[in-house]
Amino acid sequence: MMYAAAAAGVVVTMLLALVRALIGPNIYNRILAVNVFGTLSVMLIAIYGFVDDRPEFLDLAIVYALINFIGTIAVTKYVTFKDMGHGDDGDPAGDI
């Protein structure tokens, strides 16, 4: 029962993040919303493992946590430097 409540709370928060992703207004708000959404997906999968009494789904949650991080970094890096890894010549900014 409580797992259902927990899942419901996460889903409602997901909807709030989705609203932020929909109304923007700029790319950074949307990246932020997607990042939050990813974190919440990790939580939803973890909780679902307990709902279904098969916590081995947690492996998946671990992978999600890592992918979410890599995705956010890649997207912000790309938006910042418009460039995948090849900085401008000797660009001191390439250290994020």
Partner: peptide, 30 residues
Amino acid sequence: VTAKLALILVFIFFTSPTATHALARAAINH
């Protein structure tokens, strides 16, 4: 299972500040 949950917690604790900082930097640079 507890160990795996702790692992997720550690991952999120270590990665989220980096992601947040990267996002803030990207916004300021634009």
